[in-house]
Design a protein around this nucleic acid. Structure first.
Lengths: 224, 224
DNA sequence: CTCGTTTTGTTCTCCCGTTCACAAACTCCT
DNA sequence: AGGAGTTTGTGAACGGGAGAACAAAACGAG
C-alpha cells in the first residue's frame, strides 16, 4: 500500500493553517532565487518563525523532508499549495468598489496566489459606468447570477459598515460559504460559513496601545 | 478622583488587547443609538464574543461595571479609549502611495479612531505631483524631517514587497517605533520596535483551506 | 562496512487563553 | 427593611499552542 495514508483528512491546527501561506510565500521566494533545497532553519528564518515550530507545522502535512538533508523547495512548495488548496484558481467576487475595493481589485497578489476576481459589484448605480482592473463594475443585483455562473464560494466585502451585514446575508443566500470582511462590523452568519475579518484601524489601535506603554513605563519596559 | 492607580501599568494579555478595539467600536455604536447602560451579555453580542470572555477582558482594566446593573456605556468607552491610548490623536505617516496607499490615505476610520495621517510618501518622483486625501505626496527623502516635525512614532508601509524592508529600516532609523506592514514580506526590526502585518492574500488562503476541506470532507478518503 | 555528522520528526513540558461556575454586590419590589 | 432577582468579577479546570530536547534516519568519509 502507498505511504499516502488518508492523512489529507487530518485536521491541522488553526495556528498552523495561518502560517502555511507564509511558508508558501517563503518557498516561492527561495525557488525564484534558484535554491533547490533548504533546511528547516533557513526556511524558518525566511518565514520569520522558530525552526522547531516550522518543523512541527510541516509534520502535520506529512513527512516531506529528508533527514540530514532538508526539504526540496519545489516539492514542498507544491505540497503546501495543494494542502491549502491553491493549486487551482478560486473565483472571488468583491462587493463595494470604493477606495478599498479599487485597491483590492487591482491587487496583483490575489491572482498570483490562486485567486481570480470574477466580478466587482456595487450598490451605487453611479459606479456602474466604471471599469476597474479590466472589469465592469456591475449591480449588486447581479450577485446571484454571477455566483451561479462562476461557481463562486468566496466573497469579499469592502462596503461601508452599515451595508456589510445585509451584503453578507445576501452572499450566504446565494451560496457563498467563505467571506473576507473589510468592513468594521461583526458579521453574523450561519454555521458552516467561514468569516475572516481585516480591520485596518484595529491594527493601528493595537500598535497605539503598545506605543503608549513604551512612553509611560520608560524604566519598566525593556527599551533598548 | 479617577483612581489612577499604578494599575495602568499592569500587563494586559495580548489576546485581550486585540479585542479592546472591538469592544470600543461596539460601545461607540451603542452610544450612538442612545443606549446609556448595557450588560456584558449585550455588549458581548455586539462585539461577537462570549460574555464570560468579555467580562474577564474588562476585569484586566479594572472594575468599571456595577453588579446587577451592567456597564455605563460612556464611562466604559472612555476607559477603554484611555487604556488603548486613543484619547488623543496619533500622527501617522504612510509610505507607498499605490492603490492600497490611496485607499488607506482616504480611509475615514483612521481619523475617527484617533489617528491622523500627517504625510504621504512615495519613492516614485512621478507621484510627487499628486494630491491624495488633501495631502501632497512627498518624497520618501522627507521622512526624517516629517517624523521630527510631527513627532511621529507610527508608520504604515504600503509599498511593494521588495521595498518594504528598506523602508522599515529607514523608519526605524528616524525613530519610528511601531510599524503596520501591508507588504507581503517578513520584516526584521530591532527589539523594541512593534510590527503588525496585514496580508490580504494570506487571509484568502486561509479561507480557501477551509473551503477546500468542506468539499472534500463529506466523502472522506478521496484520493485524486 | 562502519562511524560520525547533519537534519528531520516527535515527545514532553510549560504557558497562555478560554470557558465554566459561583460568590459577591447591587437594584427593585413588597 | 428584607428578600428575590440580576449581573459582575474571579477562581479553577481545561485545551491548545510554543519551545526545548532528543531519538530516528539519511548521507559521506575512510
Amino acid at each position: 500500500m502507498t505511504a499516502r495514508t488518508p492523512d489529507s483528512a487530518r485536521d491541522i491546527p488553526e495556528a498552523t493553517v495561518a502560517r502555511l501561506p507564509v511558508y508558501l510565500r517563503a518557498l516561492i521566494s527561495l525557488a525564484e532565487e534558484g535554491t533547490t533545497t533548504c533546511s528547516s532553519e533557513e526556511l524558518a528564518a525566511f518565514a520569520g518563525v522558530n525552526s522547531a515550530k516550522l518543523r512541527k507545522d510541516l509534520s502535520y502535512l506529512g513527512s516531506y523532508g529528508t533527514r540530514g538533508v532538508g526539504y526540496d523547495v519545489e516539492y514542498l512548495r507544491y505540497q503546501i499549495a495543494r494542502e491549502i488548496g491553491v493549486t487551482q484558481d478560486w473565483p472571488v467576487v468583491i462587493v463595494g468598489i470604493g477606495n478599498l475595493g479599487h485597491a483590492l481589485a487591482n491587487y496583483s497578489g490575489f491572482r498570483s496566489r490562486g485567486f481570480r476576481v470574477v466580478a466587482l459589484l456595487d450598490a451605487d448605480p453611479d459606479r456602474h459606468e466604471e471599469v476597474v482592473a479590466g472589469l465592469d463594475v456591475r449591480s449588486f443585483e447581479d450577485l446571484e447570477s454571477i455566483v451561479a455562473e462562476h461557481d463562486v464560494s468566496i466573497g469579499v466585502i469592502a462596503t461601508p459598515a452599515v451595508a456589510a451585514q445585509s451584503v453578507a446575508d445576501r452572499m450566504v443566500a446565494t451560496g457563498i460559504t467563505s467571506i473576507l470582511n473589510f468592513a468594521p462590523t461583526v458579521l453574523s452568519v450561519p454555521d458552516g460559513v467561514g468569516v475572516r475579518k481585516v480591520d485596518l484601524s484595529i491594527e493601528l489601535q493595537i500598535l497605539a496601545y503598545h506605543e503608549q506603554r513604551k512612553s509611560v513605563a520608560p524604566g519598566a519596559g525593556a527599551v533598548s
